[in-house]
């Protein structure tokens, strides 16, 4: 256990340094949320006038949705880093040392979560700049960041697990492209759930992205903290299940060599 913690920390440090040394990635991952917020925020500004929308300002509504969407996409790509470790022989070098096997996955997941925390804070700040106002202030914002990090942990574990099973960038890219947009649009990221067709609302109930969007929005704008807590618990459970999947995938990978 002691080695698990210290190995995870050392490997996490490596991933963080790598991220900071290729700062262009931080920029690239923020371009999209800027476009979503600035462009869609303007384009669909009047959507809130639709009966039943219940929120007065679309930017207030959109910002938590974009936070979650960015967390989802960013962490879904997390397996690419592990693939490059596999391809460049870094994984073999690690596995020939006594390093805690669990730490290799844990460090990747924590790195994804940490990245989500930074990105979410920046996007919330950007939302404020663009005129959003969050009724629940700092506490609400912190809850959003936490919910985003939980979602990011889950999807980064899925992504790393898939990377270990598929071992090809092409496979990972197609899976993400195939599921990415549907999971986003089968949620209330852009539009209030009351305005969704019934079948979409039914599917959205089982969509972790939607759990996170609803929790995040309620945390900044609403007052139903029990709902936030229940969604956050679901997301924590989701992250654990995904973590188990990634760990099993790692065992399968090592056996297959």
């Amino acid at each position: 256990m002691g080695w698990f913690v210290s190995d995870t920390f050392q490997l996490l440090l490596r991933h963080v340094k790598t991220t900071l040394r290729i700062p262009i990635w931080i920029l690239v991952t923020l371009v999209q949320p800027v476009i979503w917020l600035a462009l869609y925020g303007q384009l669909f500004r009047r959507i809130v006038d639709l009966p039943g929308f219940q929120v007065a300002s679309y930017i207030d509504f959109l910002t938590p949705g974009v936070v979650i969407m960015t967390a989802f996409f960013g962490s879904a790509w997390s397996g690419m880093g592990l693939l490059s470790d596999l391809n460049e022989g870094v994984m073999s070098r690690l596995l020939a040392t006594p390093v805690s096997r669990g730490a290799i996955i844990a460090a990747r997941v924590l790195h994804a979560a940490l990245t989500v925390v930074v990105q979410s804070s920046l996007i919330l700040g950007l939302g404020l700049l663009l005129g959003a106002s969050f009724a629940n202030g700092l506490a609400g914002s912190l809850a959003v960041v936490l919910v985003a990090a939980l979602l990011g942990s889950g999807f980064s574990a899925v992504s790393n697990g898939l990377a270990l099973l598929a071992r090809r960038e092409e496979t990972l890219i197609s899976v993400i492209n195939f599921f990415g947009l549907p999971l986003t649009f089968l949620s209330s990221a852009f539009i209030a759930s009351v305005l969704m067709p019934g079948w979409i609302r039914a599917i959205a109930r089982f969509n972790p992205v939607n759990w996170a969007v609803e929790a995040a929005r309620e945390a900044v704008l609403g007052s139903d903290w029990a709902m936030v807590l229940s969604r956050a618990s679901l997301l924590a459970l989701f992250a654990v299940v995904c973590g188990v999947f990634a760990t099993r995938a790692f065992v399968t990978y090592q056996r297959s060599l």
């Binding site: 210290s6 050392q10 490596r14 340094k17 460049e88 022989g89 870094v90 073999s92 390093v99």
Partner: peptide
């Protein structure tokens, strides 16, 4: 173990690579 494919981290310095390896060892 020194594999055919290098296995060093390109985005770390030589010293950082050695320190991490030593920690893991």
């Amino acid at each position: 173990y020194v594999a055919q494919a290098s296995g060093v981290d390109r985005w770390a310095t030589g010293r950082e690579n050695l320190l991490l390896q030593g920690h893991l060892e």
